[in-house]
Write a protein that binds this DNA or RNA. Structure first.
Lengths: 182, 182
DNA sequence: TCCGTCATATATAGAGTTGATATATATCGA
DNA sequence: TCGATATATATCAACTCTATATATGACGGA
């Protein structure tokens, strides 16, 4: 799944801008399963236009820079829906937090506690964000995906809270020598 | 977190090869929170050697190609442990499966059921794999991370099984016209 | 026996992506 | 007034992935 596919997926649900695609993929309704940056979205939209999968028009705005609104073409829609029949690639998950926890024995308790608390707070923020998003969506599949994300996040958060003291107990009581020596 | 950091993390736990780093990051004990490919691992190891964070030696093997074994230097170890004190970046999660589910209404039930079953089977494989891995590890933090991964996967699997029929019901009873017309 | 596949092992080219930065304008709060 | 934030597009170097090439041995099936 590349950025072109993400753009087509979002455009399938209505015309929009590159700026908005990025926002939805990093903070909005798509944020919990995909992401894309400006550096890949703008070139992707240009290519999609070349290929005839999208069209664009420039819209002037008061008090804001004028924007370029993209719409998907019938060909683009067909191409996207057909691509949903392809074999699915595996999920990708990366977590610096879990890498960090793998080395708790080498780190001071104060730092470990701080990072775990930060993590729990981030989960809370994310759950709040999903709750807000759910109100904006009525299509059952859209709500289902958001619910699934929320369910997984709540579960991870709960497990972390339950295990918190056990993990902190694994950390060093004193500041790590390598760091303390600085 | 870049590939250089992943290499250092794995090398912190013992000398190894580029091939093994890739294997552990895609199928082994690191697979549930990071990943790296050959195209990034080999250049990363070369750079780390240039920078003095690792050293290497070539080891001839019978019946197998000779391999290049990397070891972390004291400087490399210090650099890695210090980097664990940095602010943590957010987790990254991407799922073609969830993108697929977001468009169930446009897809035939047979396909949706097939993909959900494939997904559940993959969860089962992954859970089995983590169980095997857990036996190989004794360090509490390593086991904790594997357990956390297993817990999250079991939860997602269970939720999917519970919701399966509800999702399938959202899909189209007939083959999608756009596809059927091909 | 021969052939394909799989596992070990390193390496690279080309395509794709990220992260940082530049540009421009307007609003909001300190 | 100053900095931060939001809207909006765009680009570039650095990084990463996917696919492929190379080489060898083992294993199983036709």
């Amino acid at each position: 799944m590349n950025v072109k596919t993400i753009c087509l997926a979002i455009l399938t649900q209505g015309e929009t801008t590159g700026y908005d695609i990025r926002k939805r993929s990093t903070e909005g309704d798509y944020a919990y399963f995909m992401e894309a940056s400006f550096g890949s979205i703008y070139p992707a939209l240009s290519k999609l236009e070349e290929e005839g999968y999208v069209t664009s028009r420039t819209v002037a705005q008061e008090g804001k820079p004028s924007k370029r609104v993209y719409q998907i073409t019938p060909t683009g829609r067909e191409f996207f829906i057909n691509s949903l029949y392809d074999e699915l690639n595996d999920d990708m998950f990366r977590s610096e937090f879990l890498l960090f926890l793998r080395f708790v024995e080498d780190l001071p308790r104060s730092l470990v506690e701080k990072r775990i608390n930060e993590r729990i707070a981030k989960c809370d923020d994310a759950i709040e964000n999903v709750k807000k998003l759910e109100k904006e969506f009525t299509k059952p599949s859209e709500r289902w995906v958001l619910n699934f994300g929320q369910h997984c996040m709540r579960n991870a958060r709960q497990y972390l809270i339950e295990q918190k003291h056990e993990i902190i107990a694994l950390a060093q009581e004193e500041e790590h020598p390598a760091r303390a020596a600085e």
